[in-house]
Design a binder for these strands. Structure first.
Lengths: 225, 225
DNA sequence: TTCAAAAATTTGGTTGACCAATTGCGGCAA
DNA sequence: TTGCCGCAATTGGTCAACCAAATTTTTGAA
């Protein structure tokens, strides 16, 4: 299926806004209206049903689900590759600057002792990473655990999207022959500062340490580092 | 298609982890392995392809795409109803507190003159809203436009998810007989302050005005307002 | 023996016929 | 007149046959 049928059905849905219990015309009628074969239409409907956008009942019809609310977000692509494709490194960083200081602040208040131990362990393993790919895995896990420790499920989900996008953007720039981060790599001390602030339960310190870390990362990126 | 075929294929993929260029067995071979008809398997593969998980090439085969990165985000639920179901009002506000001051700051730098005129128009219409449902529509559009004006596609997408969740959470609390916002409603002045700062291109002022607006909203919520 | 073109095979994609589930209408009994 | 049941029509779902694209093998010429 080319994306054509799916986008055509989406466009049609957007132009045919109805109440949330809107019943679509039968497939055999809608398909020719949209210039599609019934099979093509069915594929698009299948994807939309899997997205939770529609409900299809044999013998009854196909119904739109809670259109006004679902539309608001279902047009948001969570295909991380698509998001990464339209996100530059600095844009990804801007999203991190928005989310991660807030998450660090919340983590200082909510992290469990076990989570703090794990963060300290990850911080140490990053210093010993044998190459950049291992370092990046550990770095993503480090930031993911901070986000999880914050205790806000919605913010955690948003962070996971951003973390996924960021990883793809970073992988596009990594040269596998670049070896490993050296001992003076700026992030090592910054990660230490973050974990120390979390351990002290210093929420403003944790926020400041995370902001400093991200700004330092942006500076290194814009310096071509 | 019951969810059975799709989840069966997902489980099989999870147990058969391979390198990112993993080529799946041909449909005619994999279907009987999974106890599915070829048609059932094809529907599951279609959904997974739409999610960006797979790439299917006629005459060549079906390939897994960047599993380690895609997995990071595909387990994130973007069904706004599901997200709303596990998000309380204060948690939704925490997500807004993280995102919207940053977006307001960026909007002050990037908004077009046309977008500023539209924001001013929305701000005025909100003062005249005949009931809460109209007010909420305008309010969502107001915040959506600020997010769009910021010029960062990833942050805009994140905001749309949050805005969708927030709308559902708010609708659960709205009593339709509550009438309309009164003339002294705190948000009226706060929206004015935000738009004024944007018009002045005052990015720190815009950030502060948005923060104040959100804190005021939280205070009203926790006071039972 | 090697290389290029043609043929055969393999793979995912489409189609019309038919199947399964639901709805609505008409007829009949109380 | 009302309620229930059976049947036909309608709706989405499945299937085997066939189609389109890519890959592999075979053939023929140099």
């Amino acid at each position: 299926m080319s994306g054509g049928a799916l986008s055509r059905v989406r466009s049609w849905l957007a132009s045919e806004r109805r109440a949330e219990d809107f019943r679509l015309p039968p497939e055999r009628i809608l398909a020719p209206q949209l210039g599609l074969s019934r099979a093509e239409l069915r594929k698009a409907l299948l994807v939309l049903e899997a997205e939770g956008r529609l409900e299809r009942k044999v013998g009854s019809g196909t119904y739109l689900r809670q259109a006004s609310d679902v539309e608001l977000a279902t047009s948001v692509s969570t295909d991380v590759n698509v998001l990464a494709g339209r996100t530059g490194p600095l844009e990804a960083m801007a999203a991190r600057v928005a989310l991660e200081p807030e998450l660090a602040q919340m983590a200082a208040l909510h992290a469990s002792p076990k989570q703090l131990l794990e963060l300290r362990r990850l911080e140490r393993e990053m210093r010993a990473a044998p190459d950049w790919s291992v370092y990046e895995d550990l770095d993503a896990a480090f930031h993911d655990l901070i986000a999880k420790s914050a205790g806000n499920p919605l913010l955690y989900d948003l962070h996971r999207i951003v973390n996924g996008v960021r990883r793809i953007v970073v992988w596009q720039r990594l040269n596998p022959s670049d070896g490993a981060p050296q001992g003076g790599y700026h992030s090592f001390k910054e990660h230490d500062d973050i974990v120390s602030a979390l351990e002290r339960r210093d929420h403003t310190g944790a926020r400041a340490a995370m902001s400093a870390h991200l700004k330092s990362t942006i500076a290194a990126m814009t310096a071509g580092g």
